[in-house]
């Protein structure tokens, strides 16, 4: 990609497009990957509310897959997940394994 020249810049270094960080993927930061085990999921959405990276997709109030483009693999969701009958609905596995 061609780097911007001074004429291409917004005056005052203002960023004109709110929320354009969605174009900056952070998934590659991950060392561990959360895996969703749907059958243990009680749809409490704790994983969604506690995720610091807005990387748990929810559609029509239903938990969906992880957004691996942005998940940094912190493991908060897995730790906070109550799961079903003591069985976690999220497991952390090492990337590349």
């Amino acid at each position: 990609m061609k780097q911007k020249g001074w004429k291409d810049l917004a005056p005052g270094s203002v960023i004109l497009e709110g929320g354009n960080a969605v174009n900056f993927k952070t998934g590659s930061w991950r060392a561990f990957r959360p895996v969703w085990i749907e059958e243990n999921c009680i749809q409490c959405l704790f994983c969604w509310i506690y995720c610091p990276d807005m990387a748990v997709k929810v559609k029509d109030s239903k938990r969906n897959e992880f957004d691996y483009d942005f998940c940094k693999g912190c493991g908060i969701c897995a730790l906070e997940c109550p799961g079903k009958k003591g069985k976690k609905a999220i497991e952390m596995i090492e990337e590349g394994k």
Partner: peptide
Amino acid sequence: KLKELSKKEDLFTHGHRMCSGCGAPI
């Protein structure tokens, strides 16, 4: 209720660069 709140748009989006697991974005 989380079910209702989850329908709202994220006004603070992913793609930020806080450390993994940081409390501030939460």
